[in-house]
Design a protein around this nucleic acid. Sequence first.
RNA 1: GCCAACAUAGCUUAGCUGGUAGAGCGGCUGAUUUGUAAUCAGCAGGCCGGGAGUUCAAAUCUCUCUGUUGGCUCCA
Length: 670
Amino acid sequence: MIQIHISDSEMHEYSLGTSAGDVIRNVHGKKCGAVAALVDGVERDMSHELSDGQRIEPIIGDSEAGLYIIRHSTAHLLAQAVLEYYPNAKPTIGPPIENGFYYDFHMDPISDDELKKIEKRMKEISRENIPIVREEYDNAALREIFSENPFKIEIMDDKIEDGNGSSVYRQGDFVDLCRGPHVPTTAMLRWFKLTSTSTCYWKADASKESLVRIYGWSFASKDELQNHETLMREAAKRDHRKLGKDLQLFHIDEMVGQGLILWTPRGSIVRNQLQDFISNHLGRQGYHQVYTPHIGKLDLYRTSGHYPYYQESQYPPLVERDLMTKLADEGCSCGELSNRMDEGEIDGYLLKPMNCPHHIRIFTSQARSYRDLPLRLAEFGTVYRWEQSGEISGMTRVRGFTQDDAHLFVTEDQIAQEVLGCIELVQIIFGNLGMEDYRIRVGLRDPDSSKYVGEPEKWDKAEQACRDAAASLGVPFTEEEGEAAFYGPKIDFVVRDVIGREWQLGTVQVDYNLPERFDLSYTGADGEKHRPVMIHRAPFGSMERFCGVLIEHFAGKFPTWLSPTQVHILTISEKHKQYANEVACTLKNAGFRIELDDSDNTIGKKIRTHRAMQPSYMLILGDEESENQTVSIRNRSGEQSKGISIDEFVADLELEITSRSAHQSLVKGE
RNA sequence: GCCAACAUAGCUUAGCUGGUAGAGCGGCUGAUUUGUAAUCAGCAGGCCGGGAGUUCAAAUCUCUCUGUUGGCUCCA
């Protein structure tokens, strides 16, 4: 007999050879939802044989650990189905991920129809209730089992030490190298859906074999799967690409170019308001606003080190026409041209991929003393980067974008304080917009790498400054080694979009590199030359990405101060045209963004149409209102206030806008 | 850039295995004068993303280019 701990206070006695599953079924019942067991703190299969004195707990399917196991097992189920249809496919790795799993196969690409077929077969296998069995082998036996699959052999080479052996899991004819644990039978894998296919490379290395990746969702219950599907559908509705079209905020035109945003009048209002908002803060924080051109000479970028090093992510250089003609006459080939440009024999201009070099040349335009520092130069600067075509997406990943950029030239002693000032600005903005679902990432250098410029002591100091600044914010942050830029540590603000993808928005970066490359200096109190440190910062990241994220954040329902149109005035009948025009005039003069609809449609129809554009408020004007010189206010959720005087409405709206309130406060109810 | 899917009017879309396009919304014109999520009628919108090919015949099949979507990779 063996003694098994069920809880701190409870101990049961079982016969020798009792499995984890036996105990869990005995204690918690058959339908407790357990997929595996935690035995002395280690995850085990249900079939795991217990020994005397062990402590056991069930791992429930909808727990984090349970879902991990279910998703991992679903990946195996996928591999089983794939191998039935494509016996030559070589499974590589198949891990669980958020909401599901993927599995990479070395095989020919498959179509969506084939994906459906595979999913159908997975459901069948699930219903067949095939046991999933763990088997252990020594290294020689493992290599025999997977002799046909070089990828598995490579995994063994990497991960399994000599003489250790490992486990495999078998379900029907399918067997996979795996540490487990797994659910005991395919019947426990029911609530999944294959979502998409993709290609990737073995070990994420483009020089290695191309693999087919199949993605799926997997959950512990029907409800959870359906919830997730609903969530995804809801998310699609607030996708900024859809709303941008519906609300006429921006347009991307095939004829203009991929990843190049055309801001329409309504979208431009949102952008302008955000810029004003930042500009206000810049003044208060002692920034100077500057303007610089969209291009600069190649030499500028040779000095900064961005040309030719980051050439593949830049638009190609512009070369003067006369020079081009001359080179053409000489029979200069494209490759030759490129080489001569790299080497600096030929000059040209580059669309600026960042604003720093321009700002640096403003710094060097005068002799600077320590009394000038910190010098803070800000610009809404538009930059151009040649992103890979497959990566471009809506407003969040584009080829031309405007950064709310600034560069601070500071002494080393000023770093900590200035970094703090920068992240406070980010916090003010995020806080005002009600964006709370973000994380702060402090990017530190990777201690094992040599790619970083600057002396270690300076790095230590700068990293500590970033860490301190982040800590002083009172919100959680992560420190991530290797996330620093090569020239200095940074603090990033990362938000998630509606479908869970993360986007880096605001960023604050400490830079020792560019001051060195451009040989920047200021005269200290001691009369000696000193090297300043630069801080790059962009609280929004870019206007494009930020607006994209903001559209999704508000689901198109912008707070009044940002709303492209704030008030839509709707008449009930022709009789009220005159009054409506008077109200419209008053509101326009008060500086509000309004739209007037005195067409002969029914009021129901007008409300329905205007709702689509999401104005903050609609004013309904009929007999009652025109007789009493009042307005009837309707907010976005359809609540109304009647009989409000125009003066009161103007005053209240004014307040809501100037306070940049995130909430609609004008409808007070009956 | 790679893999898959997709591209029909301003928007949303129908069009099965080839026989050269239908609808709703929106727009315009009338009628209607309306009290909180669609009043009625008429009219005008399409080289079916561009180009090439197969065919007596292509929105439909093939190739190619452009763009979009989901991933991969990348992101100073």
